[in-house]
Write a protein that binds this DNA or RNA. Structure first.
Length: 662
DNA sequence: ATTAGGG
DNA sequence: CCCTAAT
């Protein structure tokens, strides 16, 4: 069955940044708007999935099933965030016929193909199908900050894109929402080369020509005529919003796939109606979703799920641990990621590079402004993460894949850092030269300057993370860390064989908690520059030691703190069930309510239900304008008030309040 | 373990 | 959702 795949992911991308997390104070202040920060689908995840799906489609088509298994069955994802012409190739593994493995690997195009490859190529293309992803951020006022992920320019890689998104919403990040657009198009087979989106072939044979007209460096226009599928980036919405009605049988599993969320078996009609889904694209997304849960064989869906449940639970022995792992999935906020810079990369000294966008525009245009000292203003637009190789068992969940990627990333990042300055591609080694002497004057060409984050060679001679490394997490603190550390070596060698659920726990922990913590010395200019798009940073002197040391202390401190569970907003269906149960049982029997209406929703505790009821009552009392999140039907809210009034009265009857005299 | 309520 | 106190 084609759905059973083993994934050998060659990652060279990174996730788009999660929206900023709410701090407690932000929530209290009400400046934070509901947002599903978790379970975001990494852009590359999506791309890889798309490509994999394309391949699956090809595989399962009758024509290709008998065809040669080699070259015509691979989809290529153009790797645009490296200077080299590398492809992420997705092909059936040749190891054993029909073992259903798919290899997603990085590959260097053959010389033959090379000439056909454009640097500005679509990310995914296969046999007339092309897909690409873009991400748009919207704010509450419906304005769009639409940034295309697949801009052909190197500097518009995911990372810089990410920062753009970060910046884009920074003005109103309390209301930012992030959606991931997934567009697909069936291209005319007659004119495959004229479309301009076919530089990468489905194999060695179909590489097509670039179209300079199309790839002029600007983001490609939307060309999909058959529809545009909007897939909300944030987890819970992905499946529901894009599933067609009539697929109610499919259980969508979110997050860890550990539980079937109540009410998740039906599509969200609201969202669905917002984003018209074409038939083809719909099918495609459906497949993507299927492939997101590749471990699930269609006919064995439920069984498989429960089996997997068992697996998962065997790993997470208790709820604390479970929550811990839930937490570990937290995407590292983009800003924070930069602090995990670290050691342990051996392959190249440009494992992280940073695009610096040069002097402020006013500098060149209005030289008169600069009276005495000419200031060079720099904005570091993005950092790039190094190449990662990850191998996951096919039974692993997407969530675990994400965690593994995160683990690998944080493993790579995590030690001393060195900032390299590149001028016109050449390293500037002399630290004592002035900027002017070096050629970084106020009128230098912005694109000429670049920064690179490099591992500090003196500090971290070893590529792997030694246990005694001061940069490492406190392995004596928590059990999972041990496995994380021991596995981190494997990660660097390209594979993570052990179950990813076992580690990462405390990275997420640290990351998560760090967000709420007070600013630390680790907030270096680099961080500021990314946090505030307006911050102009002149060649920062990074305190390597601070970067290396401070997180450690935080980690050890933070890892003692219990994890916050992921936020799982109640769906309308859940609310409905809750209201119904409370109507029946009253407001003081939350355990019964739980048993009655949420017995199979393991992530809803009776405390959760009680809390939800509390907020429901509150919601019902405030004006609709003040409500946030998925709107609860007024009818339900009315019932909430009614039931609440009724049961409050009942409670008063039983426990008459001792008359408080004024 | 549950319930209730503040944060 | 978290945390605590009180059952």
């Amino acid at each position: 069955m084609v759905l059973h795949k083993r994934l050998d992911y060659g990652f060279n991308g990174y996730q788009v940044p999660p929206m900023p997390r709410a701090t407690r104070s932000a929530r209290r202040r009400g400046t934070f708007r509901r947002r599903d920060e978790d379970n975001q689908m990494g852009a590359f995840d999506l791309l890889a999935t798309l490509a994999g799906e394309i391949l699956l489609e090809k595989e399962s088509s009758p024509t290709s099933s008998n065809a040669s298994k080699e070259n015509d069955q691979c989809a290529c994802v153009k790797n645009t965030w490296e200077n080299e012409d590398k492809l992420v190739k997705i092909e059936p593994s040749n190891q054993g016929s029909g073992d259903g493995r798919v290899l997603i690997s990085e590959t260097v195009p053959q010389a033959d193909d090379q000439k056909h490859l454009s640097k500005e190529s679509p990310l995914i293309q296969n046999n007339g199908h092309s897909g690409f992803a873009s991400v748009a951020t919207t704010d509450s006022s419906e304005s769009f900050v639409d940034e295309r992920l697949v801009n052909g320019k190197n500097k518009d890689d995911i990372q810089s894109f990410a920062s753009k998104v970060d910046f884009g919403i920074s003005g109103n990040r309390d209301s930012g929402d992030c959606t991931l657009d997934c567009e697909s198009k069936i291209m005319s087979r007659d004119l495959p080369h004229k479309n301009g989106k076919l530089p990468i072939g489905t194999g060695a044979d179909t590489c097509s020509l670039e179209d300079p007209e199309f790839w002029d460096g600007k983001p490609p226009e939307l060309v999909s005529s058959d529809g545009k599928v909007k897939v909300p980036l944030c987890g819970d919405h992905i499946p529901r919003s894009s599933f067609p009605a009539g697929r109610d049988d499919v259980k969508i599993r979110s997050r860890d796939d550990d539980e079937n969320s109540f009410g998740c078996t039906r599509p969200n009609m609201t969202k669905k109606s917002i984003w018209p889904v074409s038939r083809i694209a719909d099918r495609r997304i459906k497949k993507i979703l299927a492939s997101k849960y590749w471990k699930v064989s269609p006919k064995l869906k439920d069984e498989t799920l429960s089996i997997f449940d068992g697996d998962f639970k065997s790993i997470c022995h208790n709820r604390k641990g479970y929550y811990k792992r839930q937490r570990s999935q937290m995407n590292i906020p983009f800003k924070k990621r930069k602090f995990f810079e670290c050691s342990s990369v051996s392959n190249s000294d440009r494992w992280i590079s940073c695009d610096a966008i040069g002097s402020s525009s006013s500098v060149g245009q209005h030289p008169s402004i600069l009276s005495r000292d000419s200031y060079v203003k720099l904005r570091i637009k993005s950092f790039r993460v190094p190449e990662l190789f990850i191998e996951m068992p096919e039974s692993a969940t997407v969530g675990s894949l994400k965690r593994t990627v995160m683990k690998a990333v944080t493993t790579i990042l995590g030690g001393g850092l060195h900032v390299g300055v590149l001028l016109r591609g050449k390293k500037v080694r002399d630290d004592n030269k002035t900027l002017l002497q070096t050629g970084i004057s106020h009128d230098y060409h912005p694109d000429a300057l670049g920064f690179a984050l490099e591992p500090s060679p003196s500090k971290n001679p070893q590529p792997l993370c030694p246990r005694d490394s001061s940069h490492m997490l406190p392995c004596d603190m928590l059990q999972p860390l041990t496995s994380y550390l021991s596995d981190s070596a494997g990660a660097h060698q390209g594979t993570c064989h052990t179950s990813p659920e076992l580690y990462m726990a405390d990275l997420g922990n640290f990351i998560e908690s760090d967000h709420d913590s007070a600013p630390s010395p680790a907030h270096t200019p680099v961080d500021k520059s990314t946090r505030d798009s307006k911050a102009l940073v002149a060649v920062p002197e990074i305190n390597v030691k601070a970067l290396a040391v401070v997180p450690v202390q935080q980690r050890s401190k933070q890892s003692e703190i219990a994890q916050r569970r992921i936020r799982r907003p109640f769906s309308v269906a859940e609310v409905e069930a809750l209201v119904q149960a409370v109507e029946k049982l009253g407001t003081g029997r939350w355990r019964d309510v739980k048993l009655r209406a949420f017995d199979n929703a393991k992530h809803r505790t009776y405390v959760d239900l009680k809390d939800k009821w509390k907020t429901l009552v509150h919601t019902a009392r405030i004006s609709p304008q003040q409500r946030r999140g998925e709107p609860v039907p007024q009818e339900l809210l009315d019932r909430v008030l009614t039931a609440h009034a009724y049961w409050s009265k009942q409670q008063l009857k039983q426990h008459p309040e001792p008359c408080l005299l004024i």
